[in-house]
């Protein structure tokens, strides 16, 4: 068993040094002889054992004695540990590929490929907004009425629902990716605007009015709000300019936005969004999957193709 573990370890170390490569070759020789049930006569295991003991003895004599006594069982333990960690490593790579996180979809444990956990970052729904904490209930669209929310490709077969906020850095990162995917795949794209900060509530009303007035022009408005400087989007003159550039009459839209009736409808819409149980933006529903935080583009595509199923 020692030959096996040595082969594995030395093969990895062999990437860095020629000496380890030649030792790995010796170890392989040793392994093959074992496997074919010939006596392991390379002396490799003996050589390595002596070297390891020689090293340990200089640190702790007792340790060396124990190691000498239980060398084979310890080798087994190392092999099992290695196989276990190898399994988790491969699983981590796979999960990272399909979900953007080594630990699985929306799981925020440490991941070497994404050490800062970017793909799970969200702007929490702030204190000044209706506080919604990650609840027991899973985030889902079940029982949520999506009527009246802006929809692109209403006839699309597949469905993408994007909850995001113009003021949220992570929504801004995810939005263009998801939007592009929706366009490319002709999926039905529903946009649920949810302001993480109360001050951007206003934009919810502006958006509502704009969409109601002209659903076509609406999307260029959204695109602009997601890409403009964050400090600008709360500025009324910027909003006016954006509306005009999108082809709206700014006065009409802003008048509509200040209408109490609009406020009532938007509030209703926001409370509908809250029903999803989401706890931060961006939250994206693709087919039956919920993706929280800005994922790498491939992950959204995989979800749209229904392949995230395998990552469970």
């Amino acid at each position: 068993m020692f030959c096996v573990i040595s082969f594995i370890v030395l093969s990895i170390l062999g990437v860095f040094s020629a000496e380890n490569r030649s030792l790995a070759r010796e170890a392989l020789d040793c392994v093959l002889r074992r496997v074919t049930l010939r006596p392991c006569n390379t002396g490799f295991d003996e050589k390595m054992k002596a070297r390891i003991l020689g090293f340990v003895i200089t640190k702790t004599e007792t340790g060396a004695r124990i190691l000498n006594r239980f060398f084979e069982p310890l080798s087994w333990i190392f092999v099992l540990l290695f196989l276990g960690s190898a399994f988790f490593a491969v699983r981590g790579v796979y999960l990272f590929y399909v979900t953007g996180s080594c630990n699985g979809l929306n799981q925020s444990g440490f991941c070497v490929f994404d050490p800062t956990g970017q793909s799970n970052q969200i702007s929490n729904v702030g204190e000044s907004c209706p506080v919604v904490l990650p609840g027991e209930d899973p985030v889902s669209l079940k029982g949520v009425n999506l009527d009246g929310f802006p929809v692109l490709n209403a006839e699309g077969e597949k469905s993408i629902v994007f909850i995001g906020s113009y003021g949220c850095e992570y929504s801004r990162k995810a939005y263009p990716v998801v939007r592009q995917l929706a366009e490319k795949s002709a999926a039905r794209f529903t946009f649920l605007y949810y302001p993480v900060k109360e001050s951007s509530d206003y934009l919810a009303k502006v958006g509502y009015c704009a969409y109601r007035q002209d659903a076509e022009k609406y999307w260029s408005l959204v695109d602009t709000f997601f890409t403009a400087e964050r400090s600008q989007i709360e500025d009324e003159s910027f909003i006016r300019q954006t509306l005009s550039e999108a082809g709206y009459n700014a006065d009409t839209i802003l008048f509509c936005a200040s209408d109490p009736q609009t406020e009532w409808v938007v509030k209703k819409q926001l409370s509908e969004v809250v029903k999803t149980g989401f706890f931060g933006t961006p939250t994206v529903f693709i087919q039956n999957e919920v993706l929280i935080g800005p994922k790498p583009p491939r992950v959204y595509a995989i979800a749209l193709n229904g392949l995230l199923y395998w990552a469970r």
Binding site: G43, E46, K47, K49, A50, R51, L53, G54, F55, I57, T58
Partner: peptide, 13 residues
């Protein structure tokens, strides 16, 4: 006690 093991350990230690 294996003589090779002694030699290897002397070298390592």
């Amino acid at each position: 006690v294996d003589h090779h093991r002694i030699a290897l350990m002397l070298d390592q230690m």
